[in-house]
């Protein structure tokens, strides 16, 4: 069954089609949510939010992109909103005295150090850079798909990826 048939059946209220749509895209949405959330609870919450929104707006889907890209756009919108909300909450709740100390510069020792540093450097990227880096270099989406998900041109997506990689190389330069 192709996406169009599936959508038609879901809109007609077919519960099996709803489940099929969910089964088809849940792993994609979950991966994306987890990469931005970093923990199971929030990733599960964002995955649910994504599908609730997707089902409620399915009648608006016109096939201008693949269904997976359209659901991905909702997932990334939910995830980025969640990240912003978490940042706001953290900035309100953590005073300077309670804030964790800045990471101390140490001599690189192991491969795991580099892995951790890379993770921290990705976390520290600006929202747009991080989104493009995670979607392209981690999840493997094309620039065209990323453009459709984020509402930017493919040129912007490429430029942001270039800058994100530059920032990451800079952050990891001690290991070079």
């Amino acid at each position: 069954m192709d996406d169009r048939d599936l959508i038609t059946r879901v809109l007609a209220g077919d519960p099996e089609a709803e489940r099929q749509l969910y089964d088809t895209y849940v792993d994609q949405v979950w991966r994306m949510a987890y990469r931005f959330a970093g923990d199971r609870d929030r990733a599960a919450e964002w995955t649910q939010d994504t599908f609730v929104r997707a089902f409620s707006r399915l009648a608006d889907f016109r096939g201008e992109a693949r269904l997976g890209t359209w659901i991905g756009a909702i997932a990334i919108s939910v995830a980025l909103a969640g990240v912003r909300q978490s940042k706001r909450r953290a900035s309100r709740e953590v005073s300077l005295d309670e804030a964790p100390p800045l990471p101390v510069r140490e001599r690189p020792r192991l491969d795991s150090d580099l892995r951790q540093r890379l993770a921290r450097a990705v976390d520290a990227l600006a929202e747009g850079y991080r989104a493009v880096f995670v979607l392209h270099d981690v999840e493997g989406y094309t620039h065209e798909e990323i453009g459709q998900m984020l509402g930017v041109t493919t040129g912007t997506s490429k430029a942001q990826l270039h800058r994100a990689r530059g920032k990451l190389r800079e952050a990891l330069s001690a290991f070079a």
């Binding site: 969910y22 089964d23 979950w30 990469r35």
Partner: peptide, 23 residues
């Protein structure tokens, strides 16, 4: 670096049934 990037917040297996019931 590309290989390490794949480990960035590597997602565990989701609890699909629980999420479906919640949805």
């Amino acid at each position: 670096l590309r290989a390490m990037a794949q480990d960035y917040r590597r997602p565990p297996t989701p609890d699909r049934e629980a999420m479906w019931h919640a949805i």
